[in-house]
Amino acid sequence: MEATLRVLNDLEQAGVISRYAIGGAMAATFYAEPLLTFDLDVFVALPQTPGGLLTLEPLYGALRARGYREEDECMNIEGVPVQFLPAYNALLEEALTEARETLYEATPTRVLRAEHLVAAALQTGRDKDRERVRLLLDQAHLDRDYLMGVLGRHGLESRWTQWNP
């Protein structure tokens, strides 16, 4: 995975993506016991086209030029299936902006804060998201005041109350 992160850092430095951070189950492993996952979810800020549209094509094109190929909804980068997800709403834009700088082995990377992982799981609302919330609540060192602020800004208090009576 370290080689994959080096490629992502190179893409960011080249301006193919504006910013990235690890999300999903892989991000949760930075805070709690690992969950079963088959890919690396990477939230990205993409440069806008002149018409204002966001497209993954320049990113996929840059990766194809480096010899990487698509596998279903992922790009296989150094043997790791990577799913690129644009930060498509205000919560994910905030999460990307507030992502924590960290090292994976010797490679710098960014990971969504645990509080944003909880909020994103609440927003998505699947059974596996409920399990992720439970795991993060049990094992991650959450800043509860920060979490409640995130939930308030993004209208997730009622879901929080439903999932945490």
Rank of each mutant, 00 (worst) to 15 (best):
T107W: 00
E101D: 12
G52M: 11
G51Y: 09
P47M: 01
E70L: 14
P58C: 03
E71G: 05
E33P: 13
R100Q: 12
L40Y: 06
R64A: 10
F30L: 12
R100T: 13
P81V: 07
Y104R: 06
P50Q: 03
L53A: 15
G23R: 09
V80D: 07
T97I: 06
L46Y: 00
V80W: 12
L40N: 13
V44T: 06
R100Y: 05
E94D: 15
R100V: 15
P108H: 08
L85V: 14
R64N: 05
A87E: 08
L63R: 00
T97Q: 14
E78G: 08
P58M: 00
P108N: 10
G23S: 14
V42Q: 14
L36W: 14
A45K: 09
G24C: 01
L59P: 00
E105K: 13
F38K: 15
D39Y: 05
Y60P: 03
L36V: 12
A87D: 08
A25S: 15
L59M: 01
R19K: 15
I77V: 13
E73D: 14
L91E: 01
F43S: 05
T37G: 10
E78W: 03
P81N: 08
P108A: 12
T29L: 02
V80F: 04
F30W: 13
D41L: 11
G61L: 04
T97S: 14
L40H: 09
A28E: 01
A28M: 04
Y104Q: 04
R100D: 07
L91C: 00
L36K: 15
E70N: 07
P108Q: 10
G79K: 04
Y60E: 13
C74A: 08
R64P: 02
N76G: 07
R110D: 01
A45H: 01
G24M: 02
E101I: 11
L59H: 01
F43K: 02
G23L: 07
A25K: 09
A32H: 11
L85H: 07
E98G: 04
Y60A: 01
V42C: 08
A27S: 09
F84N: 01
T55N: 06
Y20S: 14
L54N: 09
Q48A: 12
R66E: 06
F84Q: 03
E98N: 05
A87S: 04
E98Y: 00
F84L: 05
P58A: 00
E78F: 06
G23E: 10
Y31H: 14
P50V: 05
A45P: 00
L63K: 02
P108M: 11
A28Q: 05
G51S: 15
D39F: 07
E93P: 05
A32Y: 05
